[in-house]
Amino acid sequence: MTRHSLSLLLRNEPGALARIVVLFSSRGVDVSSLSLAPDGSGALSRLDVVVDLQPGRTPEQLVKQLGRIVDVKSVVDRTHDEALELGA
């Protein structure tokens, strides 16, 4: 398992969160923590999530699969940002 922090901007549409969570579930991604909050205008929500990936699965792959979801406006892998913030 490898741990990754992702940050997503979602359209604030019914079922948007469900789409993300179902993708995690169907692709075998373990969710460690998840936080959803309105972002600015209210048309978008920001989702910060920490996930564990099975061996052989890459975060790039997950980012691209999340990017296919219509309600996802952007996905960023912040794993290394966080490491920097923590001074690790």
Binding site: P14, G15, A18, R19, V22, L23, S25, S26, R68, I69, V70
Partner: peptide, 13 residues
């Protein structure tokens, strides 16, 4: 809509 989440490109209600 929920049932078909993982098997559609998108679903509208």
């Amino acid at each position: 809509r929920s049932i078909t989440l993982p098997i559609t490109k998108h679903s509208f209600q």
